[in-house]
Design a protein around this nucleic acid. Structure first.
Lengths: 208, 208
DNA sequence: CCCGGCATCAGCCAATTGGCCATCGCGGAG
DNA sequence: CTCCGCGATGGCCAATTGGCTGATGCCGGG
């Protein structure tokens, strides 16, 4: 019997997962949590085999990646299977770096979900096809390696600042800002600031 | 007994709603659908009292607002209660205009959900507190009434097009595009294209 | 019937942007 | 030790953008 803890701040989603999972003979939900603290408490007390983790915990709160890291830091850490709505870049990486075993999309059919849970319990890595594809795309070519500084520029950009203002904000010259922007354009495959903002938001490089 | 049909493309969410609702003596889920066609089919065959509608149906597909409109156009239309993750502007309006009775957030506690369903079945209007607040905010001041045409411009803008390209795309002159942009800037409270894209995405006027 | 909002278009002008090229210091990988 | 990537900078120049004023046609509400 595989013991599972659900971490998601949506009661509806928790109920859905519980209903689906409890229909499986070899799976059992042993606890639920809606945030970081509750997750730590229930995981330490129940010692589940697998934690199903929603990445987009609430708005602005400690993200699923942070909770994942916290859980993996426990003495006998559970395997973590991330379950989320989006399949866009940076979240995936952060979650996997935080120690998640796998990554499934919420709109995955139940069968895929069950298989993923069992595989995770066995210590295998599970990735949604589209997620895997994204990862491959990401590591294969020039790899969209937006540097930290470039992210800063993108954030200011999304606030509508001009080059001069960004320069002031970042304590660099306008030329430098332009340089960063040029790099951003090539990396994101766009050639305007507006396009860069949209691309950055879409790939979750920045959030709104 | 109130008959309910669930329209949501996430199996997990459907299962969750079904599990929660079936725990209520006076509520019963009589059907599920994951898209426009299925929704029309199951609603005509089951004649539910209330339809629980997810607004963000899939990516790019016919949105929940469209499905709502289609359902309300049926001979004996069911009451529609929109259930969604976000409480940001434009979606709400579109759904209500499409004939939805009310609007609840997915992270609402189950009790609120049940109460909402019963109220909707009685023909009452239900709005999540935050949604109601948003509506008030929206109608009170200058009201961010982005016109349809302006949304088109914003979409092209987010794809990084220049004024000239947008003009070609929209079959108007460059001057017209600039005019639309100026209006957009004042309405969104920004003064650059990049800022406009970010603001538009944040308020869910456009999606990525 | 008039007014306001929407969409359309025009011209002017200053400021900003984006492309391109070249340089420099620094720290890590080979 | 050398090469490479990142961050920072300078300059040049054409194209684009954004602000402003003003005007027209159409439609719907008061």
């Amino acid at each position: 019997m595989i013991g599972i803890v659900l971490v998601d701040d949506h009661p509806v989603v928790r109920a859905g997962l519980r209903a689906l999972i409890d229909g499986q003979a070899d799976l059992s939900v042993v606890g639920e949590a809606d945030g970081l603290d509750a997750a730590l408490a229930v995981v330490t007390s129940e010692g589940p085999d697998v934690v199903l983790m929603d990445l987009s915990l609430g708005t602005g709160k400690a993200g699923g990646a942070a909770v994942t890291a916290a859980l993996r830091a426990l003495p006998a850490p559970p395997e973590v299977l991330v379950l989320t709505t989006y399949d866009t870049e940076s979240d995936i990486l952060r979650a996997l770096e935080a120690g998640a075993r796998g990554y499934l999309l919420k709109d995955a059919p139940p069968d895929e979900l069950f298989a993923g849970i069992r595989a995770t319990a066995r210590g295998e890595t599970v990735l949604s096809p589209s997620v895997a594809a994204t990862l491959v795309r990401r590591t294969t070519p020039g790899a969209t390696t937006i540097t930290e500084r470039e992210v800063e520029v993108l954030e200011l950009l999304s606030r509508g600042l001009g080059n001069k203002e960004m320069a002031r904000e970042l304590f660099v010259s306008e030329a430098t800002v332009k340089s960063h922007l040029s790099h951003i354009y090539t990396k994101l495959g766009v050639d305007t600031r507006a396009g860069a903002v949209a691309a950055a938001i879409e790939r979750r490089i920045i959030r709104t």
